[in-house]
Amino acid sequence: MVDFIQAVGSGVLVGLIYALLGLGIVVIFKASEAFNFAIGEFLVIGSFLFYVLFFDLRLPFLVALPLGLAASALVGALVERLTIKPLLGRSPMSMTIVTLGLGFLLRATVQLFFGSHTYSFFLDLPDITLELGSLIFLSDPIWAGMLSLATFGLVLLLLFRTRWGLAIRAVSESQARSMAYGIDARLILLVIWALSATCIAVAGIMISNFGALAAGSGIVGLRAIPVVLIGGMDSIGGALLGGLIVGVCESLVAAYIEPHGMVGFKEVAPYILLLLVLFIRPYGLFGTVRIERV
C-alpha cells in the first residue's frame, strides 16, 4: 500500500511537468489547429538558453530564470514569424508538417552550437525533501511539480483574468471574427506561440534538472502526445488531467510491472492507455466540448 501511494505521488509530480508540456501544445492547437511537433526542440532550446545564462554567465537564479524564459518566448515568437505566419490561411495540416521539419532544423542548430555531448545540469534549490513515515519524496521532483503547477496556474490567470487573455481566447475561437472587431489576430498568434514556448521552457528546465541536458533530450517532449490525446487536444483542463494520468500510469508501471522483467515498458504504457481511451472517447476525455443551444 505504501508502495502504491509512493508511486502515485511520484507519478503526480512528474505528471505536473507533463501537464505543462501538454498546455504548451493545447494553447497552440486551440488557436491554429496545428500540433507543434517541435515541442522537444523547444524544450531543449529553452533549457539551453537558461543553461547559458545561469551556468555559463553565472547570473543569479532569479535573474537567469525570467531572462531565460523571456529568451525562450522570443525564440517562440521568431519561429512563429518565420515559419507559421507565412502559412496563415492554409490548412492546419501544413502547419503541423512544417513543425515536423522545424524540429529537425532546430535540433541540428542546437547541435551546431552546443555539440551532442551531455551537459550536467544541477540547480541547487533549497532542500524540501518530504518524509512521511516510510514515504519519501525527493526535493527535486517536488520542486519540479510545484513550479510546473505554479506556471500552469499563472497561465490560467493570464487567460481568464486579463485583457490579453481575453483576446487570446477570442482569437482562438475565430480569427476572422476577431479581426472584424479590430483585434490584431496576427499579433495574438505571435503571443500565443511565445506563451507556449515559455511554458515548454519551464518544463524543460525542470526536466533537465533531473540530471543532464543534451541536444537529444528533446525526445521526452513527445510524451506530450499521449497527454493531449488523452485529455483532449483543445482542452486546457484536459492537459492537466492528461498529464497527471500519464505521469501516474508511468509511475505505477515502473513500480509494479517493470520489476517483472519488462524494462522500459513504462514508456509504452501511456500509449496503450491512450489507445483504450480513444476507443471510448475519440476526442479525448475533454476534447471538443461543443456548446450547443437546444
Binding site: R163, L166, A167, R169, A170, E173, S174, A176, R177, S178, A180, Y181, G182, I183, D184, I291
Partner: peptide, 26 residues
Amino acid sequence: ITYVMEDRPVFEYLTIEENLEAAAFS
C-alpha cells in the same frame, strides 16, 4: 468603419460581458 459579419459573429465560449470587452481590445 466597423463590419458586423453575417451569422451573428460572437465568441460563443465567452460571456456576454467578455464579448463586449473583447471587442474593445484595440
